[in-house]
């Protein structure tokens, strides 16, 4: 089909709009100047400062720990939800799984804040993790359900007809077949958790820092290349996870 130059130009402009800002963040993280204004010279100073910043290290450790637990639990629960949504006709489950994704994040943040405070549940790493699990379940469930929808159902049936219990049929036939989607879902959940700002902001309380919260408080005060450095590392981590997830379950990332 003939493509016009105008379409090309507009699309290239679109890609530039998406990537130039991120490239600028990365480039200035190596810039030997306090101002993110012009290129002065190459340095690793901002990274060195980052690794000497105890608060930042603590925030990174918190973020990784929360993401590890949240992705693990939400992958198990999300896989169950995806399986249940595929196999059984339920009205309530899809609503509970999909609404958290469809409404603005702040709503889940403030309602969980109310919930934890009324229960006298101390805000901190645990409350953040519980909140992250709740919003990650939906993403995992969607990926798993779409994999199940594309799967040949007769394989599981054959297993059942041959005398497998439902648990055996799931463990020996269904699970290996949907494994790539499950792993992709886990990687997505990890990424969503480590990147989440809004829900964390409301459920973390005063004393707990995560990387996004740390970045937020830094950029509220001033723009410093240290933020560029931590941003670059965080982007690198997400890039690896997401490219990996997209290899395991092509199309999975579009479900959001």
């Amino acid at each position: 089909m003939k493509r016009s130059w105008a379409l090309y130009a507009a699309a290239v402009a679109g890609y530039l709009f998406l990537y130039v800002p991120l490239v600028i963040v990365v480039v200035y993280s190596f810039n030997d100047s306090r101002l993110n204004a012009e290129w002065v010279g190459f340095t690793f100073d901002w990274y060195r400062r980052l690794f000497a910043n105890d608060e930042m290290i603590q925030a990174a450790v918190n973020s990784l720990a929360i993401a590890a637990v949240a992705s693990l639990v939400s992958t198990v629960l999300g896989t169950m939800a995806g399986f249940a949504m595929h196999r059984y006709r339920s009205r309530l489950l899809p609503v509970l799984v999909l609404t958290p994704i469809a409404i603005p994040e702040i709503l889940m943040g403030v309602s969980l804040l109310l919930f934890f405070v009324l229960l006298n549940f101390t805000l901190g790493i645990v409350s953040v993790t519980l909140a992250h699990i709740a919003f990650c379940i939906g993403f995992v469930a969607i990926v798993v359900r779409s994999r199940l929808a594309g799967m040949d159902e007769s394989l599981t049936e054959a297993a059942r007809d041959c005398g497998a219990t439902p648990a055996q049929a799931f463990r020996l036939v269904t699970l290996p077949l949907i494994m790539p989607a499950v792993i992709a879902g886990a990687l997505m959940a990890f990424t969503l958790s480590i990147d989440d700002f809004v829900i964390t902001f409301f459920t973390a309380g005063a004393g707990t820092q995560t990387l996004p919260l740390q970045i937020y408080s830094m950029i509220k005060i001033s723009v410093t290349p240290e933020v560029n450095a931590v941003s670059t590392l965080l982007m690198l981590l997400t890039l690896v996870l997401i490219v990996l997830a997209s290899k395991l379950a092509p199309g999975a990332l579009r479900t959001s």
Partner: peptide
């Protein structure tokens, strides 16, 4: 390539425009 920026941190994408 379109989706990748969406999966990078929300605050970083906003911060880029501060610069």
């Amino acid at each position: 390539l379109v989706i990748l920026p969406f999966w990078s941190n929300f605050l970083i994408r906003v911060y880029a425009w501060m610069i």
